[in-house]
Design a protein around this nucleic acid. Structure first.
Lengths: 243, 243
DNA sequence: ATCCGCGTATGACGCACGTCATATCGCCGC
DNA sequence: GCGGCGATATGACGTGCGTCATACGCGGAT
């Protein structure tokens, strides 16, 4: 029983890119100290303010990072398989600055902080991998700030889905498929608007065939049509009163 | 001449917290490889897309990081003395993702990438300092994203100045002084709005004595009054139709 | 079957704020 | 002196979208 479990954890460790640079014996050590946990959609991995005692890496599934503001929640980021979540908090002995929630059935690997630091010190390659992830995160936040400003809601939603298509889109016969179950509420939280506005845009695009919501996924028949739907807005006649 | 200069660079290196953990001989080595440059207000340190060939640390003065979007510019961050700027870009061999501009007479220390990496590898303490700065940056961006959403312009400007007061405010007889020369345009770019809106809010607050613009600085007579000016908005009667 | 809760959808209303136009006040160069 | 330029200011106008209300379909609980 426990044998089977530890065998499974070892294979999980081997499968994660962050641990690829380690020696086989270090991988075994990591596996012996790590734990794997399963979550269902909606499960809270941790809340804002919880102490960060372990490095958590997404093994499969997806996790959203949410900040609760008075004026509604904001989804800061979505992490996928292979990505470390909350590496910053663990590193700095700080409480988690935001809440983490599973968006689908998800399994996570947990590595105690102690061991995390040891790896950082002994394996420069591991450290670089972590820093690279931090970089991705920073750039993504940067882009988010830039997009948040001024832009119309339609534009932001279009950009969101174009980005998602780039990150996790699969080409199919009918266009690009984004295999992600996002509620209208979640879309709203990602672009910083209200549910109603998100619904209005998405249902209209659904009718127009620009972006079709399906069973736990979205379809983008044409990247270009989505892009221009976001750009030209309700611009009807000539003259450009829009920014 | 060159002697005097290198002497000066050495003292600069010694004065920067990031290099404090180094051995004296390493400090001397860093100083011998580093360079110091001076800029005036408005000078461009680098543009978006420029190759990042050196780690730059603010010695004195202030630098703003700007992203040029179609719909206007956005100020992402302001760096002060002691803080490394663009550490991410250098680390990842990537072109700078944003433009850096001096906001005041500013001097910067430039350390070639090669040496930067050597320090990272040989001095874990140095690496930790860098990661700590990255952390601060990430958290700051996180907060920015959260504030950008939904909030009214007044609220965002109030939060901006409360934050600045916290970061660089000095208590005086008339209140908190923020010794920073920000044009209305720059305020607008920091909170993601237009010059006109920023002007309207700031000039009104000036008349009301909530936030007074002075010669290259701002005065906040009362933190609380500024806070409530941002919160209650034009809410007059009871009932809360505002978010 | 009935009720409740949740996600989705759609309409009406109003306001905050972006846009455009205009004006004043320095400061600089000639 | 004058004209041009940039920063600050203020008013008028239009609208995107947040707010509120209402409605419908669906799954789970009793």
């Amino acid at each position: 029983m426990s044998e089977i479990r530890s065998e499974r954890i070892l294979s999980v460790v081997r499968s994660l890119p962050v641990f690829r640079g380690l020696t086989p014996e270090d991988q075994r050590r990591v596996a012996s100290l790590a734990d794997v946990r399963e979550y269902r959609r909606g499960d809270v991995l941790w809340n804002t303010g919880d102490p960060a005692e372990a490095l958590t890496v997404v093994v499969s599934g997806r996790v959203k990072i949410v900040r609760h503001a008075d004026s509604g929640d904001v989804i800061l980021e979505i992490f996928e398989a292979g990505e470390p979540v909350g590496a910053i908090a663990v590193y700095n002995y700080m409480p988690y600055p935001a809440t983490a929630i599973a968006m689908e059935p998800t399994s996570m690997l947990l590595l105690p902080r102690r061991e995390y630091f040891e790896l950082l010190d002994r394996h420069p390659e591991f450290a670089r991998g972590i820093i690279r992830e931090l970089t991705k995160l920073t750039l993504s936040l940067t882009r988010k700030v830039e997009e948040m400003r001024g832009q119309r809601v339609e534009t932001r939603i279009a950009q969101l889905f174009l980005l998602l298509a780039e990150r996790m889109g699969k080409e199919t016969a009918q266009g690009i498929e984004v295999p992600l179950h996002l509620s209208r509420q979640e879309v709203a939280e990602m672009v910083g608007t209200t549910v109603e506005s998100a619904i209005r845009v998405l249902s209209r695009w659904g009718r127009e065939g620009v972006l079709v919501t399906g069973e736990k996924r979205f379809m983008i028949p044409s990247r270009d049509r989505l892009r221009e739907a976001g750009e030209l807005a309700a611009s009807n006649g000539p003259g450009k009163p829009l920014c």
